[in-house]
Design a protein around this nucleic acid. Sequence first.
DNA 1: CATGAATGAGCCTTCATTCAT
DNA 2: AATGAATGAAGGCTCATTCAT
Lengths: 193, 193, 193, 193
Amino acid sequence: MTTAPLRKDAARNWERIVAVARDLVDHGTPLQLNDVARRAQLGVGTVYRHFPTAEALLETVAAPCLEALAAHGEQALADEDPRRALTGFLTRTIEAQVTDASLPAVTAAPTDTLPRTTELKRTLWSVGAQLLERARDAGAVRADLTSDDLVPLMCGIAYAANVHSSPAARTETARRYLIALLEGLYGAAPASR
Amino acid sequence: MTTAPLRKDAARNWERIVAVARDLVDHGTPLQLNDVARRAQLGVGTVYRHFPTAEALLETVAAPCLEALAAHGEQALADEDPRRALTGFLTRTIEAQVTDASLPAVTAAPTDTLPRTTELKRTLWSVGAQLLERARDAGAVRADLTSDDLVPLMCGIAYAANVHSSPAARTETARRYLIALLEGLYGAAPASR
Amino acid sequence: MTTAPLRKDAARNWERIVAVARDLVDHGTPLQLNDVARRAQLGVGTVYRHFPTAEALLETVAAPCLEALAAHGEQALADEDPRRALTGFLTRTIEAQVTDASLPAVTAAPTDTLPRTTELKRTLWSVGAQLLERARDAGAVRADLTSDDLVPLMCGIAYAANVHSSPAARTETARRYLIALLEGLYGAAPASR
Amino acid sequence: MTTAPLRKDAARNWERIVAVARDLVDHGTPLQLNDVARRAQLGVGTVYRHFPTAEALLETVAAPCLEALAAHGEQALADEDPRRALTGFLTRTIEAQVTDASLPAVTAAPTDTLPRTTELKRTLWSVGAQLLERARDAGAVRADLTSDDLVPLMCGIAYAANVHSSPAARTETARRYLIALLEGLYGAAPASR
DNA sequence: CATGAATGAGCCTTCATTCAT
DNA sequence: AATGAATGAAGGCTCATTCAT
């Protein structure tokens, strides 16, 4: 049992809070617990009880998306084509980063508030590292890029896609950037892409 | 003449303010005009007179560095080797972004406060566009990356280098990322790098 | 029977609460019922049921000590040497005040929450009054200090011992102050102390 | 120049704030800067500018009284009768403590906010120490009470006088307590009292 | 009886900006 | 031109108490 079982009404409030937060994040509004409380028609105390800090709330909002990514990553590990596996995983990751406004901050944060977040991030990092490893083993991959660079690079690409780019174009833009980077990653090695 | 000639004491205050701001930026301290005033031993009003907003002050702090980049860009245009020219220009740009804490915000900002900033940014963009154009003409360069992508990509790389990277390692990290990206940019074409 | 007989589990909770409160008081932590509840692993409601206010809880914590003092007082009344009796009683009282952090607030409070507290305080006051009376009858005692002054003076001495004095030294400090005061109390009369 | 010269309007606000605080203290109302601001019809910021913390304000309120005590102390040092000098000084001190509600907290505080407060307290302590010394030299004074005990004892007596005593009677009560204590202090030595 | 979620008033503090001097 | 005092909205957080489950 990871999550403590909540009373029915408490659970409803929890949902309300997270839903409101989701909305705010999607609109690019900074998460302020007082604000969340007002919009959720709840007392501030209630919000603070559920989420002691704005970070905790943000991580909670981001969690489902991180879970999905992790799930996809597990599948990617089963792919027999290492390059395809890595490319697919990174593509999904970038898409998520650009699509879900709750991710960038959580991903780039050096430290987490919720243990669950740490766990998920660790999983994702680990999957990425394995996929990169395999790609390296299989074919040629730049030697000077390591698994430690994956997260920064994903964050960087997502960030780049948000600079001077209309929201509509972001996903496509991010994809182009990723492809260019992968090209560089795979280096001179004959591409199977 | 863009800048009105200042009285001698006013000029001295201007310098003091910019120097203090430079310091704050270098220390990662957020620019607050009240704070700047106190440290510069000046009244807030004086600071506001010179710089109506914190952005204006930040852009002023960033200006010299942007000028230097622009100057370098002009030289790069004279280089006969297009790829070397582009590579050199981007390298300098990235180094500046990572080294000078006043740049990222100014570069990524969709809109400027000072005309001078707009002018400088336009120049830099134009130089980059020309260099990219020449490289494209000269050899193989990815077709799906255009000059509009240069600024975002530079910002993205600088951002990536700041994620999970110790300050000391940032310059080197950024360089690795740029090289990988350029590899992708130049694509399958045999690299002269 | 003053206290209603509690169901066994209720009694256990009662004990838990008081024990936790005792601990908090000893550590100088302010008594907050929410806090107590959490530490006792009980619902707030349970704590509120047993102790409607923090004062009630504090008085409950202080009670045993007050009881012990009262018991000692009863014995002192049997002492044939009036001055020794009074001195001994006051000494014990002061020691308790300085040693047990729950006492000062309860003793100095002009009004009590629990009837039991009122009763105990009344007893102590009465004992003190009698001992003072006897001392006065027996030998010379300042005429301008009455039994109404005993409690304030004890509180004052305890308070004084807590000002600028390290916890370790408090008991000894308080004793010195008490002796000085008693000297004054007994006045010019030859001391048998 | 101890106090920075204030602009006329600022000085008026300063006065207003201190006056309001004085009032609150006299009524036993806890000092809250927001509250003070509202009552003084000033913005909170103004109050915070003048007094960064409630302690600073309290010490400012207490200062005049401390100054007066210090002044009296200086005179007492000139008195040729050591016992009379000491008694007079302590009497004035106690009266002040009981009369002025801003003093007890400031006096008992182990640490100060304003340098001026520290200075004044040091002066007072020093005067007390000298007077005690002289009294000791001149006649008999309990050996086990030192100058370090003066402040705690004064605080204690003032505290005692506030316990269970009507405001009207406090001064008189405190005086009786002080006399008793002095009796003890002067000990068996033939009193000139 | 026990629980603990919910409440929301209340306090604290910061800071961008204005404007009288 | 320079000054820096004043402003007060805004946001953060705690905690005593109630009440539905």
